[in-house]
Design a protein around this nucleic acid. Structure first.
Lengths: 338, 338
DNA sequence: CTTGCAACTGCACACGAGTGCAACAAAAGC
DNA sequence: GCTTTTGTTGCACTCGTGTGCAGTTGCAAG
C-alpha cells in the first residue's frame, strides 16, 4: 500500500521558494550559495526530512562511494577483525562498505565482482579466494580499483598487500631450537592458500638449513576442528614431535586442546606450539599462544589510504603496487624460554 | 587519467542493432523480447562487458536492493556469526548487504540510518544500539523497513525479534539447584542492554522464588576481559559463589579462565558456570561451556523472510510485528550432572 | 484479400541529482 | 553616473535505466 515516498530536492526547493539548483548546491561542498538561501534550504530540508539520493548523485558523478568487501567465512576471528578495521576506516574516509559473502568456490568470487560492477563500486577489496583473470581485468578497465589482501597474485593492476610469511616461518624455527626442541612438525590445512603454503615452505626450508627434518601434515579447512584432527594424527605417531607450528591460530587452539585433553601432554613442557594470526583467543589464558600478529590495522590503513589517494598517482606504477608488511612474533607461553 | 568508463545499454544497443529498450527488456525478467533479439543483445553485452547499472535501475524502480546492517563490535563471535547468516540469506534473496559499523554512542546509529536513507536502502537491520525515535519514524515514513534484533523496543512499525531471555534465565537456576549449588551469582556487564537486563532479572526472580539470594555484579563491556575482572571481584569475597550465570559467553570464558588459573578452582566441581549465546568457543574443549544457543539461523531466516514478503501483508499489523524465539539450553560440562 | 489478434519494437518521458552557461543584481572603482 | 567586478541564481542538459503507449510486423482465421 504505502509505497516508498522519499522527499526530493524539487520539493525542498518549492518549500524554500528557490530553484532546485540552489538545493543541489547547498548540499554540494564548494558550490556558490548565499548564506540566506542556504539557510532557507536547510530549514526546508530539515522540516521535510530530505536526504540526498546517493543513487542519483552516484549516477551523475560516476562515483558511488561504495566499496565492496569480498570475504568468505566472515565469522572467523581473523576475518571479522580485519572486516571491523576496514569498515571503520572506510567510513571515516566517506565511503560505505558493501559486504559480499563468498563460499569457497571460485565462481562465487567472480559473481561478487560482477555485483560490484553492477553497483558501480569505486573499489573492491578481496579477502578470500581469487577472481578469474578476465573478470579482474574487466573491473580494472571499468575504472574500478582492486585490492588483494594476502593473495600473493601476480596480476598487474590491483594493489597487493602481503605479509612476510616465508621469512616469519623461519623465525619460529629459531625459537623452537632455542627452546631445545628437536622434532619439528608443521600442521597445515588442505586449502593451499598462497600464504599458508608460504608458511609451510618457509618453515621446512629453515629447518632443513639447520639439518632438521619436518613432519608435515595437512587436513581439512583451517579451523579449530581441523586442528584437533591434525593433533590426533600427529600425536599417535611413534615419533611424537616436540614442537608444532600451526598455519593458523584456530588450528593451534584445536591442536593444543587435543594435545592437553586427549593426550594429556603439557604445553609448553612436553610440546611447544606456535600459531599465526594473533586472534583474540590466542591471548586467552587457556591458550596463551605464542603467535605471529597479522597487522590488521596496518593492512586496513594501507588499503584505505591507497583508495582515497587520487587516481593519477597510482597510474604511474602501471603494474599495480605491491605492499609487504611485517608479521611480528608475539611471545606468550606456548614456547619454552623467551 | 583513465576515468571510469562503464559500458551503457546504449552502446550495447548500437552494437546489437536494436533499440535501447530492447536491451533494457532483455535484462528485465518478464519483459517481452523475441528470442532472436535477446540472443543478439546478450552477445553484444558479453562482448562489451556490459553490466546493468543498479544505481540507475534503483533510481527508476525506487528500490535499490540494498539492505543496511547496522552493527557495533562486528568482530565479536556472536555478532559475526549473525552477520554471516544474514548476508548469506540476503544474497540468496537477491538483496545486497551494506555494512555500517557503529560505536556505542547513540548518535552513531542515527548517522547510520541517515546513510541508509541516502542510499535508499530497502530495509535496515539493527543489531546494536537504539535509533532515535524520530529517525526511526522517518525511515518508516520513507517506506524503508526496519528490523530490530534483540532490542526489545516498543516502537510501532519495525519488526522486532527477541528471545525469551527472562524465562531462559529461570531455567538455569533450576539446573544449578539440581547440581547442588546454593550460593548463586550473576555476572553482568554495565552496558544494560534490554536483553542482558532481562537475563539478570529472570535469574534473580527465579532464585528468589526458591528462597535464594543472588549476588549480582556488573562491570565494563560484555567481553572476555570484563569476565576476568568480574571473577577477580566475585571470587575474593569471603562468601564465594558456587554457581555463576554469566550474561554472555565471552564473559563466561573470561570468568572461567580467571577462576581456574588465578584462583585454582575446578569447574564444574567447585564452581558451576553457565553462559549465553553459544559462540563457537563455548564448544572448545578448554571451556566446554553449558550455555543458551542464540538461534542465529532462525533469526536470520525470519528477518529475510519478512523482508522478502510483499509489503501489504505486513501493513495489516499496523503496530509492526513482534517475533519471539526460544533459546535452547546446550548441555556441556560446566555444570555438574545433566 | 481482409480482418483480427498477439507479439514485438521504439519513442519519449520519468527518476533525482550535478553543473556549464548566461542572465542578473549588487557593490566597488573611477 | 557609468563601468567593471564579483557573487548568485535559474535554465537546460546530462547521467543510465524502466515503462506506458503507439506503431509495426507476422500469422492465422474468416
Amino acid at each position: 500500500m504505502s509505497e516508498k515516498v522519499f522527499v526530493s530536492a524539487k520539493e525542498v526547493a518549492d518549500r524554500a521558494g528557490v530553484s532546485r539548483s540552489a538545493v543541489s548546491r547547498t548540499f554540494t561542498p564548494g558550490a556558490s550559495v548565499s548564506a540566506e538561501t542556504r539557510r532557507r534550504v536547510l530549514e526546508a530540508a530539515e522540516a521535510l526530512g530530505y536526504h540526498v539520493n546517493e543513487l542519483a548523485r552516484g549516477l551523475m558523478r560516476n562515483e558511488s562511494g561504495i566499496v565492496c568487501l569480498i570475504v568468505s567465512d566472515v565469522a572467523t576471528p581473523y576475518r571479522s577483525a580485519l572486516l571491523r578495521e576496514l569498515t571503520l576506516l572506510l567510513q571515516k574516509a566517506g565511503k560505505v562498505a558493501m559486504l559480499i559473502n563468498t563460499d569457497r568456490s571460485d565462481g562465487s568470487v567472480d559473481r561478487a565482482l560482477r555485483q560490484a560492477i553492477r553497483y558501480r563500486a569505486d573499489a573492491s577489496i578481496i579477502l578470500s579466494g581469487m577472481p578469474d583473470r578476465s573478470i579482474a581485468q574487466l573491473c580494472l578497465r571499468s575504472g574500478q580499483r582492486l585490492v588483494l589482501i594476502n593473495r600473493d597474485d601476480e596480476q598487474p593492476g590491483p594493489l597487493r598487500i602481503n605479509l612476510d610469511d616465508y621469512e616469519a616461518a623461519g623465525r619460529v624455527v629459531t625459537a623452537f631450537v632455542r627452546a631445545g626442541c628437536r622434532k619439528l612438525a608443521f600442521a597445515n590445512s588442505e586449502v593451499g592458500t598462497p600464504s599458508l603454503m608460504a608458511r609451510e615452505r618457509g618453515f621446512v626450508a629453515a629447518a632443513n638449513a639447520l639439518g632438521m627434518e619436518v613432519s608435515v601434515e595437512r587436513y581439512g579447512w583451517t579451523g579449530y576442528d581441523a586442528g584437533k584432527v591434525l593433533a590426533q594424527r600427529m600425536l599417535t605417531h611413534t615419533q611424537r614431535p616436540d614442537a608444532v607450528f600451526c598455519a593458523t591460530d584456530l588450528l593451534a587452539c584445536g591442536f593444543m586442546d587435543a594435545a592437553r585433553h586427549q593426550f594429556s601432554m603439557s604445553v609448553p613442557d612436553q610440546l611447544c606450539i606456535a600459531g599465526f594470526d594473533d586472534i583474540e583467543q590466542a591471548s586467552w589464558s587457556s591458550y596463551n599462544l605464542t603467535t605471529f600478529a597479522q597487522p590488521v590495522s596496518a593492512i586496513a590503513f594501507k588499503t584505505v589510504d591507497w583508495l582515497s589517494r587520487p587516481r593519477a598517482e597510482n597510474d604511474d606504477a602501471i603494474h599495480g603496487q605491491s605492499i609487504g608488511l611485517h608479521a611480528e612474533l608475539v611471545w606468550r607461553g606456548s614456547i619454552r624460554g623467551g
